[in-house]
Design a protein around this nucleic acid. Structure first.
Length: 439
RNA sequence: GGAGGGAUGGCAGAGCGGCCGAAUGCGAGGCUCUUGAAAAGCCUUGGGUUAGUAGCCCCGUGGGUUCAAAUCCCACUCCCUCCGCCA
């Protein structure tokens, strides 16, 4: 949620910033009007309330003096004021509700240095890391051999690592089913990523079903309810990402500045209805309703946020480098960043078999947008006098989403004989296995 | 699923319908004393709204009774204990 005071005091600045997303901002002008009438009517109501309180006290006095006639008079007066108060309060509630629903639907203000753009085509590629050379360089498709130009679903089928037709039998399209060494490979990836990060990030194993309030905190509700799975019987939502529970852990809490930044990692299943993307990326593992990923998330003070953002980015990059996969870092433009984010870097890994750059991580800074919704604050260190609590900043990034990483990995590591070499770093997690070949 | 008990400030824990935004203890911060520290003493210390140390709101949430609700009534949510069932 954006700060209503910021909007009130700098309306033009805020509105033009949000307009950089290329969305309609007329509702924000309405919000400003609602806010000003809300404040004036609230003031009127509070004045009436103050009167009522005074009268009530005099009734107490009169009762002590057994002054029946003045008690009755005061009661009359108070009742009349009560009617007035109720009417004003009704208006306050109505306006407040209208204002709130606009604010909840309003996306975050993009960061100043977030590049302008209308959509994915305007994203800025910051750098490309070439696994074969172990350095940042120009991408060169000729580095790949013909035997790497086989899509992962064919590889998975040939080596018996994937069984997508049975997955479809069980659950329909866009579900995965890994088998044998294919399953072991996902497990290895997961374990490896958690081990790599558990020094810096505290490991959490959160629930994967959450209440509505939890989804609202991160901005996944109310606007994007169609994208999530909902269990009506129990009024619970299946999480679309570990960001949801990890962010809400500190909901309604006041943290102390000396504990910040706080860093967490979690491996969870992620559930997405993909309502708006029917027919897109339907082959293989590129788009699934259920997948696993390891998520990194941090709570920080506003002044720490930028550094922590870079830190999470390099943590995520370090996995791809360790796996020796080619990837690029993309700075998402204002037209492409998510609603709650102020700045986002995507990591896209190159999958030679499909000849596609696959988004495997999205590292975002949410400024105080989520913290405001979730009411997560911190108390500044009291060295310079007393300061009241203010909102923290939240940041997160997928440490990696497994299906797409798995896909890029088997395509990249395919050999001329059709087998797959297991990346060295994963071998300890695969009982030392060096190669996945035909059984 | 059944039966009980509970929900108050960072934590613990009081609170006859008006004198309660709330005792007390702990914790935290500041000061005094001290070479320094400890101990001791003194003072301060919930959140929100607002230009505001004014007013108003917040004692799980939502309703109700009343001139007046933390306190009475109703509903709901959550937590704890016991029983049953089950990984």
């Amino acid at each position: 949620m954006i700060d209503i005071r910021l909007l009130r005091n700098n309306p033009n600045e805020v509105i033009s910033s949000i307009a950089r997303r290329g969305i309609d901002t007329t509702q924000l002008y309405k919000a400003i009007e609602l806010d000003s009438s809300l404040r004036s009517i609230t003031a009127q109501r509070d004045k009436v309330r103050a009167e009522i309180k005074l009268i009530s006290k005099s009734v107490g006095q009169a009762a002590k003096n057994l002054d029946q006639s003045s008690i009755e008079a005061l009661r009359q007066e108070s009742r009349q004021l009560g009617d007035k108060e109720q009417e004003l309060d009704r208006q306050v509630e109505q306006i407040d509700k209208a204002l709130r629903s606009i604010l909840l639907a309003t996306p975050n203000i993009p960061a100043i240095d977030c590049p302008d753009g209308a959509g994915a085509q305007d994203n800025v590629i910051l750098r490309t890391w070439i696994a074969e050379k172990g350095i940042e360089a120009e991408f060169d498709p000729s580095l790949y051999f013909d035997y790497q130009r086989v899509p992962h679903w064919e590889i998975g089928d040939a080596l018996g690592l994937l069984d997508l037709s049975r997955a479809a039998k069980l659950s329909g399209s866009m579900f995965g089913l890994y088998k044998g060494k294919g399953a072991a490979l996902v497990r290895a990836l997961n374990q490896f990523a958690l081990d790599l990060h558990s020094e810096l990030y505290q490991e959490i194993h959160p629930p994967s079903f959450v209440r509505s309030e939890t989804m609202v905190s991160t901005g996944h509700l109310p606007k994007f309810s169609d994208d999530a799975y909902y269990m009506e019987r129990d009024d619970l939502w299946a999480i679309p990402t570990a960001e949801v529970p990890l962010t809400s852990m500190a909901r309604d809490e006041i943290l102390s500045e000396s504990d910040l930044p706080m860093r967490f990692c979690a491996s969870t299943p992620c559930y997405r209805r993909e309502a708006g993307s029917a027919g897109r990326d339907t082959r293989g593992l590129l788009r699934l309703h259920e997948f696993n990923k390891v998520e990194l998330l941090a709570y920080a003070t506003p002044s720490q946020a930028n550094q922590v953002h870079q830190e999470i980015l390099s943590s995520a990059e370090s996995i791809l480098q360790a796996l020796k996969l080619t990837y690029r870092v993309v700075d998402l433009c204002t037209g492409d960043i998510g609603n709650s984010a102020a700045r986002t870097f995507d990591l896209e890994v190159y999958a030679p078999g499909c000849d596609m750059w696959l988004e495997v991580s999205s590292v975002s800074w949410f400024s105080d947008y989520q913290a405001r919704r979730a009411n997560i604050r911190y108390r500044p260190n009291s060295s310079e006098g007393k300061k009241s609590p203010s909102f923290i900043h939240t940041l997160n990034g997928s440490a990696l989403a497994w299906p797409r990483t798995w896909a890029a990995l088997v395509e990249t590591y395919r050999q001329s004989d059709g087998s797959i070499v297991v990346p060295e770093i994963l071998r300890p997690y695969m009982k030392g296995m060096e190669r996945i070949s035909f059984d």
